[in-house]
Write a protein that binds this DNA or RNA. Structure first.
Lengths: 402, 402
DNA sequence: GGGCCTTTCTTGCAGATTGAAAAAAACGGT
DNA sequence: ACCGTTTTTTTCAATCTGCAAGAAAGGCCC
């Protein structure tokens, strides 16, 4: 949790959150005189925490400077751990991709193998970026499983045995010899998407739903990433929408994840083909069936493919409508592989469910959209987690010598 | 939204939120010297915004004073509008009940009748409290329907026709000739329950679920009442838990409200009796069936009554588990008439669902309990809504002469 | 009740911080 | 190059802050 005591710190975080800002915004927002803002900004510029990045014309006369957090404040590493691979990136403070690396690695082989692969992936990313290891002081790691963020543990990884109460953060810290911030992968994606799209100012209450092999969510409340009392908030995958629905990997019935993931769509198509549904898709070579081929069939108007996506969209819509009723965001962004491939179908289902199920005030003013594809967004989000932690450390150090 | 600029204001709201506090807490919380706190508090005491209420022994030596918001800062009225009656209360700043009044009134008869009854109820409450009308400057009104708080409209009232886009706030303001704050009734109850139980410090993330003739919720995030982007957040009644479930009043299927309200329990019992379920409850005089008689039967071990409550508890549990996954609160309080009558059954169902469905970090540390019965809690909550608005006005006025 | 110890709260004072106004700087147009 | 406009810095008096010393308040022992 950030805690700011001086105006300088507050100004820094204001600029950090909005990415760029004018001095006049600061006077308005903090209700202090232009003189005071000037003094605070001058200090931040002197300490190189903030830089002036061009000017912005509003009226005739002198053009005000645009302030940005110094992107060179630190170089960060981001690491995305997935079931079959680890991806690493190196970014600057603003989340600009400087280099990347990826190593295939089956998580079933255990922690040590994953750590080794991670190290190799980070090495590749550093080489790609042309940055020496010593320059990176903070690694952000994202994990798709079930985490205890207080202790940095992976409590449980669905479908990957042997990952019960694994001290992931400490092991990474030890292996990399640098500070490590661990968080949920979905939250990392939400952070990166939000930063890349520049929506932080316009939609302080927003949710970013990721639909891929699983379903995750990142929640922003009043412009801040929301985590809840025990940092376990913002789960959507196991939200129930149909008590009598199909069995989910979590052991319960009718979770959103049992309907609206890539696996669930493929299973539905396979089962329907086996049951003799009419479709142009080949019912024989069932291991040839990919989500891309289903999407291709859908765009050709294949009824089974269309109904598969419609089913997923409806289920996702019910899950999202539950979240919208509870959180009342003004923006819902669908990210992830399934959203990229079948975005329109999902948006249609989600919009319909929200319109039908939510109260007027919640449904009327919610913008539902698909995130554009962005390279390595998940790992970049992890790096941004590290960026915030590192920014905090550096600000404290440079302003107060702590 | 509160916005505080000076330390005096911040201190006032800190005390307001915590109900009572020591000077030492203020030094810690605001990271300022004891001298500065002393100066701020002296000013607040001088302006009679805050009072010293006794002392609190911590160690040998001088006992520190306990600070409280001056309960006599204002006298507030609270008005709860329900389908068949309106209830009014008069309270002080702290929400202490000074007087009450209630008038039966069928909302179907329209706005004017409700306004008339409201006026009579407030008159009764004032007489009961021995407070002249002129002393009350702010009325808090709670409504169970679907509201547009920005414009103070009642957009829609389920089961009560003729309440589409009714300018409730403005009509009340006109009729009572005082400032009116309108809000959701569930939020009012959450506020009152939280204040009465003194949980604001210990559980900054908490939800208060009301189960009665409908289902509502009040959400606290980081110690503040959460409203969402368009003030429509915190709905739980129409959260879906079973797409194929029974039809709800909202027109959709499988909402929590279709399972876990007094009406839903009675309907289930009636239907089961008609279908020949074995029970000691009389299947004949079906209009004699009340929720109290079902509760009595359940306490005698009647299988049908038990299964009725279990069904409601399970459904409510699924709804609450959805909320817990999304918001990850550390406290869930069940309020409302059904919670009062069948609290244990509901807590059992909710605990089970949360344990089974939520991730470990969310379920392990959530406290689920039933609120003790409190007289006129809903109307008192409405008065507390007015209290906060009025406090804001008075603080501004006394500190800055605005 | 009067020392005596401990802790809380207030006051005096030097130094830091603030806002208003004046001055300086930057920009486009002529 | 000059002018009008807007932004940014500087100047200076007023205000605010923290430290340290002192005053006040309570408990305990005799």
């Amino acid at each position: 949790m950030r805690s700011s005591h001086t105006l300088e710190e507050l100004v820094f975080w204001y600029i950090y959150d909005r990415q760029h800002c004018l001095r006049s915004e600061l006077t308005d927002h903090f209700s202090v005189s232009a003189a005071t803002v000037s003094r605070a900004v001058t200090l931040l510029l002197d300490k190189e925490l903030v830089v002036e990045a061009g000017t912005h014309a509003t009226a005739p006369g002198r053009r005000p400077h645009v302030l940005e957090v110094n992107p060179k404040l630190a170089t960060l590493a981001g690491l995305e751990i997935d079931v079959d691979r680890v991806t690493a990136v190196v970014t600057d403070m603003a989340g600009t991709l400087l280099g990347r690396g990826a190593v295939r690695c089956d998580a079933h082989q255990g922690l040590e193998k994953v750590l080794e692969a991670s190290q190799e992936a980070v090495r590749q990313a550093l080489a790609d970026a042309g940055v020496p290891l010593g320059e990176v002081r903070h690694l952000g790691a994202g994990h798709p499983g079930n985490l205890d963020l207080e202790h940095g543990l992976c409590l449980f990884w669905p479908n990957v045995a042997g990952w019960r109460s694994v001290p992931l953060r400490d092991k990474l810290r030890e292996r990399f010899g640098m500070e490590v911030t661990l968080d949920d992968r979905s939250r990392a994606v939400a952070l990166a998407e939000r930063r890349a799209s520049g929506e932080n100012g316009r939609h302080p209450n927003a949710i970013y739903v990721q639909v891929g092999t699983g379903i995750g969510m990142g929640v922003f409340v009043d412009g801040r990433l929301f985590r809840g009392a025990t940092q376990a908030g913002g789960e959507i995958g196991n939200v129930v929408i149909d008590t009598d629905g199909p069995l989910c990997n979590c052991g319960n019935r009718g979770c959103v994840e049992a309907f609206a993931t890539i696996g669930a769509v493929l299973r539905y198509v396979r089962d329907s083909l086996a049951a003799g549904a009419s479709s142009q898709m080949p019912s024989t070579a069932s291991n040839e069936l990919t989500i891309e081929s289903v999407a291709a069939a859908a765009s050709r108007g294949d009824p089974l493919a269309l109904s598969a996506f419609e089913r997923a969209g409806t289920a996702l819509g019910l899950g999202v409508s539950n979240v919208v009723q509870i959180l009342n965001p003004s923006l819902v962004v669908l990210c992830g592989r399934l959203a990229r491939i079948a975005g329109d179908h999902l948006v249609r289902g989600v919009s319909k469910a929200v319109r039908e199920r939510c109260v007027e005030m919640a449904s009327r003013r919610v913008d539902i959209r698909v995130a554009p594809p962005r390279k390595d967004i998940s790992a970049v989000g992890c790096a941004l987690l590290a960026a915030e932690a590192e920014a905090q450390r550096i600000v404290r150090h440079r302003l107060f010598g702590e």
